[in-house]
Design a protein around this nucleic acid. Structure first.
Length: 913
RNA sequence: GCCGCGGUGGCGGAAUGGUAGACGCGACGGACUCAAAAUCCGUUUCCCGUCAAGGGAGUGAGAGUUCGAGUCUCUCCCGCGGCACCA
């Protein structure tokens, strides 16, 4: 069986009018190096290039200049091809493809038909992102911070009927299959984040006849629900709103639809809403809680309705604060003492307990009672605190104040909350997990009775301000409680144990959650943030959607035999909020040859990302006319190495993965992931460290660089300047070093002799072959160039260099500097081409060094380095080192604790000095 | 806030747990030259020491593991990128 070829692919570019800059060339050079070494190593290689030619920029250019997109695209692709060829890219130009040609977009339309037949393409009325500048809808993935990905205009919301692909059906597989691909962690993380899986439960709240279903990840907080919130667009709003609230609700709904994405982002923290007038019944307590609407609840996520737990959710808390809704704590924060003297000891047993923690406030001053414990040796500094026995927490507080402090007239001002602390109780010699009820107590006056001598001896009483308390207190629970005193109760959204939750009080969040969902008749559910892919665009320069409408407005898929639906050439390009195709009457209206019915074509075109979601399948046989790809060439796939920018993380890369899975499910391909290995080239900044842009005037054109330094210097410098995936500024001065290096290689031909390689040369060149081979495999191109530079520097010391060594050197240089190497290849009278010469093999025997310089480390410091023969064993090395007088002077009068000998590396002495 | 990546000379950056600063740029000194460019040679982490011998400090901060930490573990700080009312 023949070996599977290597498919090394760049994300194909949109051929823009401004041509390539040196940043584009970074990724292309990287993949070209990978392709070149693969060929030299004897692999079959597919390394094609094509044009992602549909898209807004070409159409916008047409609007501005009147040049037809087809014409500007044709011109631009020629220019791109020229630039790529001059930079020495080894693309197979016979495979060139262009997505804007009918022979290609016929299959883009076929793809739409396939999804339509599978029930994965559908039309839906709904709120969509609309770019007022480009006059078209956008997919969620194309809205960046509330702005259009292409033109940066503020995106608004519009209600429109649009075509969607059901990518949400694939959310789970898109998530789990990420495990199996060799992609940058960053891209995987972005995709996971975008898919946004979360596990939770749906619970039902009754409102009269209606039932509101909410989604929550925290069913354990159900007893803390003090109100419900519906998204303004929620379908039940109209049904449950009471007549006297109707106007306010309508007004709010109206306002919400007019907010732009950007406004919503800016107003993020400020919560607004309106009460519907309705109450919902709590599924377990059967209490009535008010139902509100607010735009902080999104109609598109979960069920579009939430149960609000202000004590344990920051957003609900902010909302409750604004509208004065009750806040009820049901989760007890669990703190673990991490500092001495009472640090929790995980290996010791734990006893549970309950206590009160009391802020006793001075009658006149803003000071609180603090206890400095003297009696026991533990040195704790606390608030007034006491274990609860038979009495209620409140009774315990009052009793304890009397006993410990003698104050007579104390009044509980309020309860701050409940908190739990796990610590080691020194007097009792065991861990305790104590649930503390935190109170604020006001002393009415300083009247005080005598306390017993015993009590007085135990601790010293201090009056401290809250600032002083922060430094004074030692138990973590008391410090946490101080925050409640100063800032009021703050929402606590971690897991913990339950309080004030009926039968579930005392259970852990996890356990309580399970039981509550069951008791409340809820259901465990998984939700995803990923929403369906909006694929229709109100633009001309794209693949027409192969759909027609009959007189009654029914949709009909254009039959495969009638594809492609070709774009008419003569249309006007002024954007008008509808596809320019609408006014092309001749194109749009036709009579169906079979049914004889009058038909109207869909005027919207497909998102350009639909075109690029399957192109990699077509490259092996790009002009295949029987299908979207040639099934006999599928053994090239999936793509082995895919190179491109990180900006496509949740755009092209997500869509292509989705479409591949659709093909897999349809039995059309046998793999589920299109790109086995993905690498992102870092972006190249201008010399001024800003992003390259025409307006900043910092764009570096490869044509200029090639003219001044040559294509090989450009390629080698692109590879050398920094690690491939890092963002880096262009530095023309840095090119000089690379140019000098290539000149040295060139000049070295003068001292090449037809003699066997010397014993000095062999280790140098074989180490270089090994390093370059390994580093290319790891995309560490910058260290390849350093290694080649080092090798040339080392060889330049010799008066002569053997031809054998020199050929090896230029062969491993050739992926980076193909032109100069090809010339040298001729000069050296070699036959054929260097670019397809076999990659040199490593001879392991030359990698073993004869001698090494042994650093002698004494107490962690290198004191001397000694030349050492590689054949010596540990004992022999030690003897030589210890015979050295300098070493002896360091080791004199010191007691040896340990000696570590690592042959070939170092020797290390550890003394007691 | 959450997620990801990173923090090493004047700069871009090297470094399987084992000699920190490879390679390149820049800078400085020298050779060649009438002179300049190019080229070649040398120096270039910081501090003390005389530009010596020698010594000390040092990879964002602090702790830990180890004979040994830029590298591993924990805590924190800072920068970059992404997401962000996702219940």
């Amino acid at each position: 069986p023949q070996e599977k070829g290597l498919y090394i692919l760049d994300m194909f570019p949109f051929p823009s009018g401004s041509g390539l800059h040196v940043g584009h060339l970074l990724g292309y050079t990287g993949s070209d190096v990978v392709a070149r070494i693969a060929r030299m190593q004897g692999h079959k290689v597919l390394h094609p290039m094509g044009w992602d030619a549909f898209g807004l920029p070409a159409e916008n250019y047409a609007i501005k200049t009147g040049v037809h997109p087809a014409d500007s695209t044709a011109k631009n692709t020629i220019e791109y091809k020229r630039q790529l060829s001059q930079a020495g890219m080894s693309y197979d130009w016979e495979k060139e493809m262009n997505t804007s040609l009918p022979e290609y977009y016929k299959w883009t339309q076929w793809l739409f038909s396939l999804l339509h037949e599978q029930g994965l393409a559908y039309q839906k009325m709904g709120m969509v992102n609309w770019c007022p500048q480009d006059q078209t809808v956008l997919a969620n993935e194309q809205v960046i911070n509330g702005r259009c990905e292409r033109c940066n205009s503020v995106v608004i919301q519009k209600e429109l009927k649009q075509w969607y692909f059901k990518i949400s059906d694939y959310a789970e597989r898109l998530l789990t299959d990420l495990e199996g691909v060799d992609w940058p962690e960053k891209i995987k993380a972005m995709q996971r984040n975008w898919i946004g899986k979360s596990e939770g439960a749906s619970l039902n709240f009754k409102v009269g006849e209606a039932v509101i279903e909410v989604f929550t990840t925290r069913p354990d907080t159900l007893f803390g629900v003090t109100y419900l919130v519906l998204a303004p667009e929620h379908q039940l709003v109209d049904k449950i709103t009471t007549p006297d609230q109707l106007n306010a609700i309508k007004a709010y709904q109206e306002e919400a639809t007019h907010k732009t994405e950007l406004e919503r982002l800016h107003l993020e923290k400020k919560k607004t809403g309106v009460w519907t007038g309705a109450f919902a019944e709590h599924p377990l307590t059967h209490e009535q809680v008010p139902v509100w609407i607010s735009d902080y609840v999104l109609s598109t996520y979960g069920t579009g309705a939430i149960m609000a737990v202000p004590a344990h959710d920051e957003r609900d808390y902010a909302f409750a604060q604004t509208y004065n809704l009750p806040i009820k704590q049901v989760i007890v924060p669990q703190l673990v003492q991490q500092t001495e003297p009472e640090k929790y000891r995980p290996s010791d047993p734990v006893i549970n307990g309950e206590s009160v923690i009391v802020f006793v406030k001075h009658p006149q001053e803003e000071k609180y009672l603090a206890l400095d414990w003297k009696e026991q040796a533990w040195g704790a500094k606390t608030l007034l605190t006491c274990t609860i026995d038979d009495l209620s927490p409140e009774e315990t507080v009052l009793k304890e104040i009397g006993e410990e402090t003698g104050y007579l007239n104390a009044k509980i001002a309020r309860k701050l909350g409940i908190i739990s602390g796990l610590f080691y109780h020194l007097p009792k010699q065991t861990n305790k997990n104590v649930r503390g009820h935190v109170f604020l107590v006001q002393l009415e006056n300083e009247d005080r009775k005598q306390i017993t001598a015993d009590e007085a001896a135990r601790h010293e009483l201090n009056w401290l301000t809250s600032e002083e308390l922060a430094d004074f207190l030692t138990p973590e629970t008391h410090i946490f409680a101080l925050d409640w005193l100063v800032n009021g109760f703050t929402p606590y959204s971690e897991m913990g144990s339950l309080c004030d939750s009926g039968d579930y009080t005392g259970l852990s969040s996890e356990e309580a959650g399970k039981r509550i969902v069951m008791a409340a008749g809820g259901e465990w559910r998984t939700t995803y943030r990923l929403r369906d892919w909006l694929v229709s665009r109100q633009r001309y320069w794209g693949a027409p959607i192969p759909i027609s409408y009959d007189d009654e407005g029914n949709t009909h898929l254009v039959p495969a035999s009638s594809l492609p639906v070709e774009l008419p050439h003569d249309v006007s390009f002024s954007p008008m909020g509808e596809s320019p195709l609408v006014i092309s009457a001749e194109w749009r209206h036709y009579t169906d040859p079979i049914s004889g019915k009058a038909m109207t074509r869909e005027a919207d075109t497909l998102d350009g990302f639909v075109c690029s979601s399957f192109y990699y399948l077509r490259f092996p046989n790009p002009h295949f006319s029987e299908g979207a790809w040639d099934p006999t060439t599928l053994d090239w796939l999936p793509v082995d190495t895919y190179m491109g920018g990180a900006e496509h993380a949740v755009l092209h890369l997500l869509y292509a993965r989705f479409i591949t899975k659709v093909f897999y499910d349809a039995g059309l391909v046998s793999f589920t992931e299109p790109f086995s290995t993905l690498r992102n080239q870092g972006s190249v900044l201008g010399p001024d460290h800003n992003k390259m842009s025409k307006s900043k005037g910092n764009v570096v054109n490869p044509d200029d660089v090639i003219k001044e330094f040559g294509a090989d210097t450009l390629r080698a410098y692109e590879m050398f300047m920094a690690p491939f995936e890092l963002e880096k500024p262009w530095n023309t001065k840095g090119m000089v070093g690379v140019r000098r290096f290539l000149e040295k290689v060139w000049k070295m031909q003068e001292k090449v002799t037809i003699t066997p390689p010397t014993i000095e040369e062999l280790p140098l060149i074989h180490r270089a072959i090994k390093k370059v081979t390994e580093d290319i495999a790891e995309f560490k191109f910058n260290t390849c160039i350093s290694t080649l530079m080092e090798t040339v520097n080392s060889l330049s010391v010799f008066p002569e260099v053997s031809k054998d060594t020199y050929l090896n050197l230029i062969t491993i240089l050739s992926p980076f500097a193909p032109h100069i190497v090809e010339e040298l290849w001729q000069e050296m009278a070699c036959s054929g081409f260097a670019s397809i010469a076999p990659w040199p093999t490593i001879d392991e025997q030359y990698l073993v060094a004869q001698t090494w310089e042994c650093p002698v480390q004494i107490d962690g410091k290198v004191r001397v380095r000694l030349a050492m023969d590689s054949s010596l064993d540990e004992q022999a090395v030690r003897e030589i080192v210890e015979a050295n007088t300098i070493v002896q002077s360091y080791l004199a009068d010191k007691e040896m604790v340990k000696v570590v000998v690592v042959p070939g590396r170092l020797i290390s002495y550890v003394t007691n000095g």
